[in-house]
């Protein structure tokens, strides 16, 4: 049995956008739309019926929202925290549910069979557990193999999506910095001392890479791990029919781990966004002062929230 893992999201169909290029409706793009629609409908319905005395669903939503809000207000201060809360909250909710969408049964496993020629292969074959007497996999890879293209794939396991979020974050960080200090102030702020300016620029740009690759790497690796565990479990089940309990126990342990990692990665992305924006808007002096006093410091010119509220 060969495990097929593709680093990039597989295209289901394409739309020509003219000068912008071709929009590939990939499986993770489709899942992104589904997750967004689900979040918007589900949470809007909860919020629409929200009352002072909450129901169960409202309580659950409120606990999560309060958790992020406390984090944001605790780090950025009450006033400024409120302005960046829409971004951080949306990031947290979208990323955590994107991560969890990859754990649902059917995501990554239901799809269409496609024949890929060896020359077109961009996916990495990271592991192969061969069935006894099944030697057909190796020659097939050279001639062109039949692979499963899943209809759904976690949006976080697609670098395009994580990069899009990192770019949004990066842009808002820069806007916050410029709003707080002005263009000249922002450059001065970065060039202090002047020879550090190139390093600061690289550091700022590297955040795009670090944010996007961290999330993508963790979630993608997690999915690969779970896939491998499923494959291993099915191999165990085939070979030793008497200890079938292992076949279910092994992937379950890793699924629980993925639940944890999914939460941690969502938190890390939202938290880093929050910290980058706070740093850019508050400036070094303010930030040091803030730490010295151990309290949130008011930010001179807070940035407008990304939601345009």
């Amino acid at each position: 049995m060969e495990i097929h893992v593709s680093v990039k999201a597989e295209t289901l169909w394409s739309i020509d956008l003219g000068p912008l290029g071709t929009l590939h409706i990939t499986n993770s793009f489709l899942t992104m739309i589904l997750v967004m629609v689900f979040i918007l409908i589900f949470f809007s319905l909860i919020a629409r019926k929200a009352s002072i005395i909450p129901g169960r669903m409202q309580s659950a939503f409120e606990i999560a929202a309060q958790f992020v809000l406390d984090l944001v207000e605790g780090t950025a201060g009450r006033q400024f925290g409120r302005r960046i809360f829409p971004l951080c909250g949306a990031l947290f909710f979208f990323i955590i549910l994107s991560n969890y969408s990859g754990l649902l049964p059917g995501v990554g496993t239901i799809g269409k069979e496609e024949v890929h020629s060896a020359a077109e292969e961009t996916h990495a074959r990271i592991a192969a557990i061969e069935r006894p007497g099944d030697d057909s996999a190796a020659p097939a890879a050279e001639e062109g193999e039949t692979v499963l293209v899943p209809f759904l794939r976690s949006p976080s396991a697609d670098l395009n999506m994580t990069l899009a979020m990192a770019l949004v974050t990066f842009t808002i960080v820069q806007v916050a910095g410029v709003r707080a200090h002005g263009v000249v102030g922002r450059i001065k702020h970065m060039a202090n001392p002047p020879f550090l300016f190139p390093i600061e620029v690289v550091s700022e740009l590297s955040r795009i890479v670090s944010l996007s690759f961290r999330l993508f790497g963790n979630i993608f690796a997690g999915e690969v791990l779970v896939t491998v565990m499923y494959a291993m479990a099915s191999a165990i089940l085939e070979k030793t029919k008497y200890i079938a309990i292992f076949a279910f126990a092994i992937p379950t342990v890793f699924l629980f781990l993925e639940v944890l990692f999914g939460f941690v990665q969502a938190l890390v992305f939202a938290l880093l966004t929050l910290i980058y924006i706070s740093l850019a808007a508050a400036g070094h002096d303010d930030h040091e002062e803030e730490h010295a006093h151990g309290a949130a410091h008011p930010v001179p010119h807070p940035v407008g929230s990304a939601a345009g509220d």
Binding site: I39, L40, G89, A90
Partner: peptide
């Protein structure tokens, strides 16, 4: 982000 804040996170 806009829709989530406008209809879900904001009201909550």
């Amino acid at each position: 982000i806009f829709l989530f804040w406008r209809f879900a996170l904001g009201p909550i």
